[in-house]
Design a protein around this nucleic acid. Structure first.
Lengths: 159, 159
DNA sequence: TCATACTGTACTAAAAGGGTCCTATTTTTA
DNA sequence: TAAAAATAGGACCCTTTTAGTACAGTATGA
């Protein structure tokens, strides 16, 4: 299966949680851990990565905490996943230096991966964090031309 | 990064290889291994999985081999990936039995995963094996409404 | 100046993935 | 009829990655 690590999953939960409570200026790592039933060290680690990717801003000190760096509608799911798992690519070959495999002008692995990666990352770049905030109501996302595309009601399981 | 295993990668190469040579009725595991510079046991394992998923048909005996079960234009990339990696889902939660997490009506993890999985699998279901056969010429895929969507020329690297 | 909270690094156990080997079954050919 | 070629299915081991934890350091505000 195409796998997102558990940590990325938790990261999405944290981002969604913060996006839901836009009135609260700051969220401490401790509060986020308690409110989402996640271990504090793990939450702390995730927040750090999201901070380095500039998706969060932090405020240190006794009244410190984290908050979203941008409105939820301007943060793509692709950005969050990239922050937590690295570039969206399917094997090493897609991101590597170009010196290794390029002498072979039609390496089938490389081109396959590029096509598939493009399709996947394109889909994720059209999904915004705001779309995850009220997931039960979501029935459509934007396609690559900005038009709304129905993806069906969210019900039952995927496969 | 969103990861497809190496084995899935090899599997795509094998399928593409067979799709390119539609004149050859059968391909032995040994030939496929040699022509794609892959170890025979690995190739054999992959062909087995693709066979069980009914993407290939096999012919046993001394003149045996494998061939595509359907025309390349009727096989989706999603089918191939599902055959080799299991259902396209991002964590266990998306495929599990429904008794575990469903009493919580708004489990944020589950709904997030469903939305993201839907976006990803939708993109992969629109990519056909035939689209990988001549990858250098591909510049567009069909969106969910059947319209062609430019995904850009295949050049350089993804990220 | 102390308590609180973020910052950064390092380490260890568990799970998954990749790869190989062995044996049985089927079919064609000599 | 027997041998060879090829698929069918399962079991096994090793490496890598991931998840989770711990600890020391730094900045801020009461």
């Amino acid at each position: 299966m195409i796998r997102l690590g558990k940590l990325t999953d938790y990261g999405l939960v944290l981002m969604t949680h913060m996006a839901r409570q836009q009135d609260r200026a700051l969220h401490t790592a401790r509060d986020l851990a308690a409110e989402n039933s996640l271990p504090l060290p793990t939450v702390s680690k995730l927040l750090k990565q999201l901070l380095q990717a500039k998706l969060l801003v932090s405020h240190r000190g006794i009244r410190g905490g984290y908050s979203l760096a941008k409105p939820a509608r301007e943060i793509t799911v692709a950005e969050i996943i990239t922050a937590l798992e690295g570039p969206i690519a399917l094997t090493e070959c897609s991101t590597d230096v170009i010196g290794l495999c390029d002498f072979e002008p039609r390496c089938p692995i490389r081109t396959n991966q590029q096509i598939i990666s493009k399709a996947v990352s394109g889909a994720l770049e059209r999904l915004m964090l705001a779309d995850l905030v009220q997931p039960l109501q979501l029935a459509a996302i934007k396609d690559s031309q900005g038009k709304l595309v129905t993806i069906g009601p969210i019900s039952g399981r995927m496969q």
